[in-house]
Amino acid sequence: MILPKFEYKKARTIEEALEIYSQYNGEAFYLAGGTDLVPLLKHRLFNPKVVIDIKGIEELKTITKKGGNLLVGPNATLYELKGTPEIQEKLPCLFQSLDATSCETLQMRGTIGGNIMQNTRCLQYNKSLEWRTARGFCYKMGGKTCNVVLNAKACYSNYCGDNAPSLMTVDAKARIVGPTGEKTIKVEKLFSGDGKEPFTVKPGEILKGIIIPLKETKGAYEKLTVRGSIDYPLVGVAVTIKDGSAKVGVTGIGPCPRVYELKEVNEKEINNIADKAYEDAKPVLNAVLTPAYRKKMVGVLIKRVFKRIEKGGSR
């Protein structure tokens, strides 16, 4: 399968990347690992005029420890991050979600920034142009309605990132830099909740870094898939317990990951959150297992993760 035509530019600094972006009036994509972007381009889901390679920007690559935080450049690969001692020692939930992401080869190419910012997915969206043209363009592609929930003027595609929910449970923040300056927001604030435009990040803005507080935590990540590797989560549940309270992140269902907080970790609270997350999950028939089942698994997996943490957390 060949790619559509575009130009290739390599940026050496963030400023240069922003500059190229504006030169091309935003008809541009930033390229890091490419494991999410290239398939989208091959499917003609996007047709940029230029692809801006930001892998060469040194400050986006580094992983450093600073003031009780781990500062992670978005271009750090999932595999590098997984091998970081601080994450292995203090953030078991994040370690497990990194380890569960796709397969080893793709972990070695895929970056944490790209993984967080991956586009939402749907069985009727991630297809060739020919397939989609025959089916008729859906709402996310600029058509009038959703092709799964017929007549709905909304998009029900699934956010399938494994690591954003873990990051949310450890209170990670994202640094965004754009033409108008820089800001730091909670990871959960990256997500718009709209399947058509899943991110709040504005055109041209670059994820510059992820700030992960380094505190002792307990946690685990549970991922529902059909196979043991390569697959995206059909439901993913991340749980981190810190100082007696806990956070639960849910991914794989609907256009954004969700995060829940437990003030105290006890059976009643866990059941409450499991019920609430179950209620919030509104899957539709756009992934390989039935929606009713995936919805059910949200609650089941939440309870299961807490049990696993209780038993020591290992998989």
């Binding site: 397969c103 069985l123 009727q124 991630n126 297809k127 397939w131 025959a134 089916r135 059909v226 196979r227 043991g228 590797s229 390569i230 697959d231 995206y232 390989v288």
Partner: peptide, 27 residues
């Protein structure tokens, strides 16, 4: 436990190697 074609009105929904689940070594 993994493999089957899925259809929507004559459209094959899993014509790829991602959503059509050929078992992997770990399975």
């Amino acid at each position: 436990i993994t493999e089957g074609n899925m259809w929507y009105r004559g459209f094959l929904l899993n014509p790829d190697l991602l959503e059509y689940k050929v078992p992997l070594a770990c399975d």
